Simulated scan of single mutants.
Amino acid sequence: MNIVIIDDTTADIEYCKELLAKNFDNSNILECFADSVAGLEYVNKHKPDLLILDMEMPQLGGLDLIKQLKSARTEIVFYTSHAGFALEAYRNFALGFLLKPINEPEFVGIITKALHRLEQEKKGNLGLDNLKSALQALENKKVPIPTMGCTYFPKVMDIVRLESVDSYAKIHLADGNIHLSSYGIKHFEQSLTPPLFFRVHKSHLVNLKRVEKLFPDGTLVMNNGDHIPVARRRRAELLELF
């Protein structure tokens, strides 16, 4: 966890450093600043995980400073001698608020909370990266479509939608071609899965990247102009995917 401390009182900076070294082995103090203007410039450039910030400083106070922060992911812990600043601190999205003189158990609790939140954010970002990679791999994949005459291999992204016709599947492609497969729609649903494809109706499987709009009556319009009915019980789930 990369940390920056901004406080015009040197003794308070040293005490924060002491508590961090004592209680958090994984903390890395990048810099400490008594000059809030210089501190703001550094934080905007290096975007630390955590900013421990005094509320009352000459030139640029804590509340004014965070209004100029460029890093939305930097967690902020305020501390000050006046409890009256607490509400204002939380209104400005502070993770925590500490009163001077700093109480060690309270300090440890707040920093632990910051660590936990940062870990959750990293997990979320990793999950998003994995999802993007999976989507990219799926988009470049080709899908075999067995028909009565031969087997076609269109790219996944070229498939607009699949339609169930009796025990067969009708595959509509972006170039306007339509193939009738001897396999049913369930066969293709095994490989054409969310978050790229979604079964909006028992008879329709659609490419979500080819969707143009959804009408209140549950009619889905694809980018090739096709109108698809969405089953009532699947509309909420469909909207969540977007």
Score class of each variant (00 low, 15 high):
N23S: 07
D217I: 10
L208E: 00
P194R: 04
N223C: 09
E139P: 03
D64E: 15
I178R: 07
L98Q: 02
A11T: 12
M1E: 12
I3M: 00
I171N: 06
P195G: 01
A89D: 04
P229C: 10
N223L: 09
A137E: 13
S203T: 11
H82C: 04
I159C: 05
Y42N: 06
P154K: 02
L208R: 04
I3F: 01
F197E: 03
L192N: 08
P48G: 03
H46N: 14
L69N: 04
N23P: 02
G96K: 13
L87Y: 03
K70M: 01
K209M: 06
T219S: 14
P194G: 03
P144F: 05
P195W: 04
K155N: 04
I5K: 09
F197D: 02
V211Q: 02
D7W: 11
T112W: 00
D129Y: 12
C32P: 01
S133G: 10
R210K: 15
Y79V: 01
Y79W: 14
E212C: 13
A21Y: 02
K213L: 15
V143N: 07
D64M: 02
S27F: 07
L138C: 01
S203A: 13
V43C: 07
L60E: 13
A231R: 09
G184C: 10
V37N: 03
K209G: 05
P154H: 05
R234C: 03
F93Y: 15
L238C: 05
R210N: 14
D175R: 02
A174V: 15
K67V: 02
V108I: 14
E75D: 15
A34R: 12
L53F: 06
N130T: 14
N28G: 00
L19G: 05
P195T: 01
T193R: 13
L99W: 11
A94M: 06
K186P: 00
V143E: 04
A89Q: 08
L118W: 10
G84D: 12
P58E: 15
A72N: 12
N103T: 02
K70L: 00
N23W: 08
L208M: 09
L51K: 08
A83N: 14
L138I: 01
F188L: 08
K113D: 15
A134I: 12
Q59V: 09
A169K: 12
T10D: 08
N140F: 11
G124C: 02
I3N: 00
L131Y: 10
A236Y: 07
I111P: 05
